[in-house]
Design a protein around this nucleic acid. Sequence first.
DNA 1: GTTCTTCCCATTGACGCCCATAAAATCCCA
DNA 2: TGGGATTTTATGGGCGTCAATGGGAAGAAC
Lengths: 160, 160
Amino acid sequence: MDQFVSTFTNKIDNKGRVSIPASFRTVLAKDGLEGIYCYPSLDAPALDAGGQRLLNKINTLVEDLAPYSDERDQLATALFGTSEILTIDQDGRTIIPERLREHAGITNQITFVGLGEKFQLWEPKRFEAYQAEARQKVRDLRKLLGAGRRDRGGPEGARE
Amino acid sequence: MDQFVSTFTNKIDNKGRVSIPASFRTVLAKDGLEGIYCYPSLDAPALDAGGQRLLNKINTLVEDLAPYSDERDQLATALFGTSEILTIDQDGRTIIPERLREHAGITNQITFVGLGEKFQLWEPKRFEAYQAEARQKVRDLRKLLGAGRRDRGGPEGARE
DNA sequence: GTTCTTCCCATTGACGCCCATAAAATCCCA
DNA sequence: TGGGATTTTATGGGCGTCAATGGGAAGAAC
C-alpha cells in the first residue's frame, strides 16, 4: 500500500514524543524522505503531513505561479515558511514543535488521519467534529451526483 | 467469476477473527489488493468493502477535485479517514476494528452480502430487516411499472 | 554543573503465523 | 448413480513477533 489510509490516535508522552502509526511509516519509508514534511493546514485547525511526494506537489504548485508575483511569494511563505521536516527516531516516534502543536490545539493526544497522498494531525476532539461534518457533506454531495442515476444499479464510486 | 455474489453469515471467534467467504476471497485475489478496503456505509448501518477496483474509484473521485482545496480534504477525510485496509491472514480471516463494528452494530456474527463490484458486511438481524424492506420496495415499484416483468428477477442484492 | 536531545532497553498487549479439527463440498470410481 | 475418499472451508487455540509506550543512560548544548 502506498497511500495513507485510516485514522489512529496516539499519546504524546511526557518527553513530547508520539508514535507515528506503523502503516504511515511504511508509506513514508517507500516515499524516500528521511522524515515527515509537515505544515499547518490552510483551511483547518490541523497539520498537513507527508513525504517526498507531497513536497514535490507543493513545489509544482508554487512553480506554476508567475515568478516574482505576489501570489507566488505569499503561497511560498504560507507553505514553506511554516513547514518543518520532522525527524523520526528509531522507535518510529517524532516530536511536534510547539508552534505546530499550537495551530492544531494539540496537547497530549494526536489523531492521525490518512487522506491518501498525505495525512493530517488533529486534536482528537476537534477531529471528531470535523469528521462528522465531512461525512454529512459527502452525503449531500452524493445526492447531487447520484440523483437520477440510481436505476443504473451501479453504486457510483461513492458509498451507498 | 470476478464479482461478489450471494450472501454468507460467519462467526466472529473470541479473538475477533472472521472468515471471509471463500468466493469473495477469490475475487479479491484477482483484484490485486493485499487486503480489503473497508469503510462505513454512508446511508446504512453496514460496512462497504472491496478490493483495488473499489479503491481506484474512490481515488478518482478525490483526485477530480482541486488540489489543496478544503472540499478535497473534506472528501478525503470522509472517505480515507474512515476507511481501513483490512488484512487477510493465511487462513482467509480478518479482524474488523471496533470502530467499524460499532457503525454496523456487529457483535459476534457477520453477514457478507455480495453486490457485484463490492460487498457489504451486516449484523445478521439488521440485514434481514433491511432485505425484507428492500424486497417490499421492489414489489411496490413493480406494481407501478406494470405487471409482467418478472424476468428482471428480484434484486436480492441489497442496493439501497 | 544543568538542561535538552538522542539512543537503547523493558513491558504489555495486539496481531500474524502455525497447526488442529470438524463440517461441507467436490471428486472419483465402481 | 451412489457412496466413499479427498479436498476445501470454517473455526478454535498456542505462540512468537511487532507496535505503542514508558523510562533510563549517554552525549551535546548552554
